[in-house]
Design a protein around this nucleic acid. Structure first.
Lengths: 192, 192
DNA sequence: CGTATTTATTAACATAGTTTAAGGGTTGTA
DNA sequence: TACAACCCTTAAACTATGTTAATAAATACG
């Protein structure tokens, strides 16, 4: 539970009362590998903070293939922001890739905290801005770069993740097949 | 100037005083075709509201090729949100595709308006959420769909834009060459 | 510890998308 | 109105990526 406070204090300081208020609205959960914390068709009613472990958020197409939109590991947030704010059913899944520990905040509780601790508005605004910029850079990469460049960029940007994730998951994130990622990795290893 | 008020009132009602306050912080500009309202290397100090005309936001790669990240036509907002909030130099350009009329709000003025008209916080939060969802859907399309599907989706999602924009610009947005878009269009026309 | 499941790699072949070059059509603007 | 700049299309050759199938290696977990 201390994890989330430490995280918030990287942005702004909090009083003891504020910390207690936050703690009272946040729930700790242990999540098994492959367990889902959001499924298609359900409204995303929580914001999730990853204390330990790793998650993927993905869509499933008509053919049943998964497409990874985002990963989240320690000290990262994950939620289907669209569904969360619109309160419409999500089209996405969020699933644990590793045994994990999360802290979750329900929508109403988050809004309650926003009202009582205005600083949190700012923090979540900054979090959202960062995610926005990340997404925009990814679009730019997708429309302008080759798969190999995107892979190298992923390694650089998420050295953490890239050593923890199976390549199948990375391939899905990059929008290529695992076989082709294999080919790329071979090229890179023989050519350097 | 009325345009932006009408736009805001689609979300929430405003008093006369509030409208006057907004009007006092907003500047009207006429922009010629090909004129830039943001260039790489400069900090994006304004949020732009398009009253009339059309803009593209793009990055230029090492080879000098442009890659369109976003279009904005009537009643849409455009800015490099990353640069705007971080106050770091932008890597993007925003350029008029048609002779245009915009209303611009400077950063400090926007923050001033946020303080004095809290409703505006909500409106901009919603605007940003919509842009976020749009971006996320675009990433999903990019990693899961063929260029033809992406093109069809663009036609559906932006019927307006697609009839106004040269195909070269659409191709750049989709991340394909104009020649290949031509091939796609031919296929679609002969096959239906 | 051992087995079921997942993961990584390879190769041959298929499809999607790019490059280059050329010609004809449109459009902006002096 | 005319010219320059831009835009659209075609086609052939080329490169990037996908598909299928098979096998070996690594990992989860009872």
């Amino acid at each position: 539970m201390q994890a989330i406070i430490t995280y918030f204090q990287k942005y702004l300081p909090f009083s003891i009362e504020e910390k207690e208020l936050i703690a009272s609205k946040v729930t700790l959960r242990n999540i098994k590998r492959k367990q889902m914390i959001l499924q298609e068709g359900l409204v995303c009613k929580h914001y999730f903070f990853v204390v330990e472990g790793c998650f993927k958020m993905y869509a499933v197409d008509e053919k049943g293939n998964q497409h990874n939109l985002q990963f989240a590991a320690e000290n990262d947030w994950i939620a289907d922001i669209g569904s969360f704010h619109s309160e419409k059913p999500s089209k996405l899944f969020i699933e644990a890739i590793e045994p994990s520990v999360i802290l979750q905040v329900e929508q109403q509780d988050l809004y309650f905290l926003y009202l009582n601790i205005p600083k949190l508005n700012i923090i979540f605004k900054v979090i959202t801005e960062h995610k926005f910029i990340e997404l925009q850079n990814r679009v730019l990469q997708n429309i302008s770069s080759t798969a190999q460049q995107r892979y190298l960029n992923f390694l650089e940007q998420y050295p953490n993740l890239s050593s923890r994730l199976p390549n199948t998951q990375i391939a899905s994130y990059l929008g290529i097949t695992p076989e082709f990622l294999s080919k790329i990795r071979k090229e890179l290893s023989t050519h350097n």
